[in-house]
Nucleic acid binder design. Structure first.
Length: 481
RNA sequence: GGCCCGUUCGUCUAGUGGCCUAGGACACCGCCCUCUCAAGGCGGAGAUCAGCGGUUCGAAUCCGCUACGGGCUACCA
């Protein structure tokens, strides 16, 4: 049997890392099994519907490289892939259930249900539908329907118990009495998740339902529904929750950071995919660094974890650095490009190798490469080493200037600069730091001599002169450093 | 409250009865390298495998109970 699985988000907000992890696992599993990964949009909640989120969800998936085989913008044999466009299917299923007695119309108003819930709470009773409309006389029902009374359709949960078989967790047994007569079709005619997902998973020949753990408690309702409709249930896999640092479920309703914000924070999609894959799954080999193709190759859905995983930003940072370093130099330059828009193309290409291994996030690019765009604008904090004074610093800069004046800047100048240090009885590191700040304005830069080479002799001499001038000017009274 | 799921270093995890005096990775600390910052190399600290009781010659691994944590409990998904 060919594997077909799906990621089925509701367009009610931005994709967050927890959702992305679910999508990833579906993608990995489908690809590993040479099956089909489907994107289906569960837009059955008109109240919470958010117009922008569909685009955001698709953009997020594509950013990660998780292109779907069937779904919005791609089509497929089971179109449409929007539940709001499949209403007749759900209605037909609901009609069948009503006809067989497995479901019934309920005329209770939201107000009554609200009051019911409150009173149950007061009495410390478990909340749930009390079954008032469960056994209404068919004639009465027909009459109210004819009169235009609004109704929902509820499933008639039978007695006994229902077993849910999960590929990684094994079998869980649920007493049906704890299940509640779930609403299947709302009074606006839209199905609830429970009906819609069961109908679609069947209609779309989904073989594996891989979804978050929060669905496990409602899985028995779904199993019941498959049985009532005479369908074979798919294989279930409930993924462990992704937790925030506070150990609570990561959720868009609890202020989780949207996936695409990580892109804006300078993370590579490769790193995010790698990191997400390791939340709740492990290749078992000890390898942490993996690309999407490698993940596909190694993925084994039976090895997914059963216990929740905490989202650890530090590990994401580490993997991001690893993936940045693993990029081919030209590719790395291309990724950095948007972060330093003013930097000339040749300079970026030449400077990229210098900064590639010292970045954790792309956001660091401007700080590391800014000196190539503009000369220090006066900020020269720390140009005078702790153990030396301003006058000596000026002398050292002048002496060093002579070295730069004698040859094109580059690593070849190191011996000459060491001589400068010796002559003034400075440490070589002190000379370099003073020059670093003179040339870049920053105490943290790529290797200085290589950086100077990018600047060019004329620019280097000019910046040294400017620094000397600034130090001399400061001698007039103001603080130099 | 009820139902369900879970519990190995701070975090992600390896581990499916003897190879475990529990391995790796991140983070942390130290050393090396070194013109800064990184990267890299080497080393260290860090888990009585939630607790208790069973099963067994032998348990992180099997069973039970307890505790704790989380999820669900909508005409949301």
């Amino acid at each position: 049997m060919k594997v077909r699985d799906r990621y089925a988000p509701s367009p009610t907000g931005a994709l967050h890392p927890g959702n992305a992890r679910s999508a990833l696992f579906n993608y990995l599993f489908a690809h590993r099994e040479e099956g089909t990964f489907i994107l289906r949009i569960e837009d059955t909640d008109r109240r919470r519907h958010d117009d922008g989120s569909l685009a955001t969800i698709m953009e997020g998936l594509r950013w990660l490289g998780l292109e779907w085989d069937e779904g919005p913008e791609r089509g497929g044999p089971h179109e449409p892939y929007f539940q709001s466009e499949r209403l007749p299917l759900y209605q037909a299923a609901a009609d069948r259930l009503v006809a067989t007695g497995d479901a019934y119309r309920c005329f209770c108003t939201p107000e009554r249900l609200e009051e019911l819930r409150r009173s149950q709470e007061r009495a410390h009773m478990p909340p749930g539908y009390d079954g008032r409309c469960r056994d209404l006389d068919p004639a009465v029902v027909a009459g109210r329907v004819a009169a235009g009374d609004r109704a929902v359709i509820r499933m008639r949960v039978p007695g006994g118990s229902t077993a849910v078989v999960d590929l990684v967790r094994g079998t869980s047994e649920f007493a049906n009495a704890t299940l509640d007569d779930q609403v299947l079709v709302k009074s606006d005619g839209y199905p609830t998740y429970h009906l819609a997902s069961v109908v679609d998973d069947h209609e779309m020949d989904i073989t594996h339902v891989v979804r978050g753990d929060e669905w496990l408690p409602s899985a028995p309702k779904h199993v019941l529904l498959y049985g009532m409709l005479g369908w074979e249930p798919p294989v279930f896999v409930h993924l462990p929750l992704v937790l925030g640092p506070d150990r609570a479920k990561l959720s868009k309703r609890h202020g989780a950071v949207a996936l695409l914000e990580y892109r804006d924070l300078g993370y590579l999609p490769e790193a995010m995919v790698n990191f997400l894959a390791l939340l709740g799954w492990s290749p078992g080999t000890g390898d942490d660094f993996m690309t999407l193709p490698q993940l596909v190759q190694a993925f084994d859905i039976e090895k997914v974890q059963v216990s929740p995983a905490v989202f650890d930003a530090a590990k994401l940072d580490h993997l991001n650095g690893q993936h940045i370093r693993a990029l081919p130099p030209e590719e790395f330059a291309a990724r950095v490009r948007p972060w330093v828009p003013e930097l000339r193309e040749e300079l970026l290409a030449a400077a990229a190798p210098l900064v590639q291994e010292r970045m954790t996030r792309l956001t660091e690019a401007p700080g590391l490469l800014g000196f190539l765009v503009a000369a220090p604008d006066g900020g020269r904090d720390g140009i005078v080493p702790k153990k030396h004074d301003r006058a000596a610093t000026i002398e050292v800069l002048r002496d060093a200037r002579a070295v730069f004046a004698g040859a094109d800047p580059g690593p070849g100048l190191e011996p000459g600069l060491r001589d400068v240090a010796t002559r003034h009885d400075w440490k070589f590191g002190e000379v370099m730091m003073t020059l670093r700040i003179a040339l870049t304005g920053s105490p943290v830069t790529p290797p200085l001599l290589e950086s100077a080479a990018l600047l060019g002799q004329e620019e280097v001499l000019g910046r040294i002169d400017a620094s000397v001038a600034a130090l001399e000017g400061a001698a007039g009274g103001k603080e130099a450093s």
